[in-house]
Amino acid sequence: MAEQAASLRFIDATERGLTRLRAVHPLAPWLVAFLLLAPLPWVLLNTYHVFLANFICVMILLSVGLNIVKGFCGQVTVGHVGLYAIGAYTAAVMSVNFGMTFWMSLPIAVMVTLLAGAVVGIPSFRLEGAYLALVTLGLGESVRIFISATEYLGATNGFSGIPAPRIGDFRFDTYQKYYYLVMPVMLLGVFFSFRILRSRLGRGFMAVREDPVAAAAAGVNVRGHKMIAFLISAGYAGFAGALYAHMIPGYLNPRNFTVIEMVTLLLMVVLGGLGHIWGGVIGAIIVTIVYDITKDYYHYSLLLFGSVIVLTVLFMPKGIGGIIDRFIATRRFIAIREGRATRPGSDDAA
């Protein structure tokens, strides 16, 4: 009982805090999040951990994007790593071979990835479920194979010498500095996904996922929504790719874009909670850390992550995000039943 009361108090306090913050300004919670995340490179003593923080930010961008198309719009795409690779290699080629700065190579990488995203999105007009998964898997893998076979892109030796971004004389050439580039972008990305998913567009995505026929009958342009979802997720992959490419040591290798990475990425979204607004974020943090801890057993990671996906789907289909939701809902139900009524769930509290 005491524990329940405590957890309920914590949830309520968090909610009240958020509500109060939002009353000050709608963006205030995001500012607080930024201020909380800002000192991280000083808290983490080990440079390797700072690298990991950067990498997690990139992964969050990727998985939040994937969650939009897969979790919210319900399109089973398994080619997301291919888009990520396209973003990374475009940025690399633009900056190394064409001498562009990061501020030019980034938007170009995003645009090229958007185009690729449209190509991945078109099959979704006709295919569903496993068939769409197969086609997207093929597209994604063919990107990696194309890179491995192309001398211009460094083939299997990898692509090196990608310069760190700079503003004037300031270069983002350590992990500590790069963090202040990648963290704000990550935060913006999460913020955008919140805004999009809680709007008319996000509801349209969910309707397409739940029942395309009923969605269409309600006036939702199903193809249009599928395409927009693919484009948005591709945009995220483009950002993630370009940020990854320019991060020191500025080196890309097709081995970083294999099926194992794809499974890892899927696990992030599934474990975090498909269609849960925090799903991609929670999943990316947990899985990246576990991935890092188990790095010595890289060749078994497919086994590990694959079986965790299966177990997650079987035993907690809504992922960690769903469990948190359920926890909050149950606590509140108990509270209401016992007469300690709190406000009924405002859905943007979590």
Partner: peptide
Amino acid sequence: RVFSEMTVLENLLVGHHLHVAYGPVAAVL
């Protein structure tokens, strides 16, 4: 064919889709 994994209110909001007058850009901003 109700949208099972959406709330009751969201189901109606999807029904009202065509009468919600703002675009994605306004949503983001």
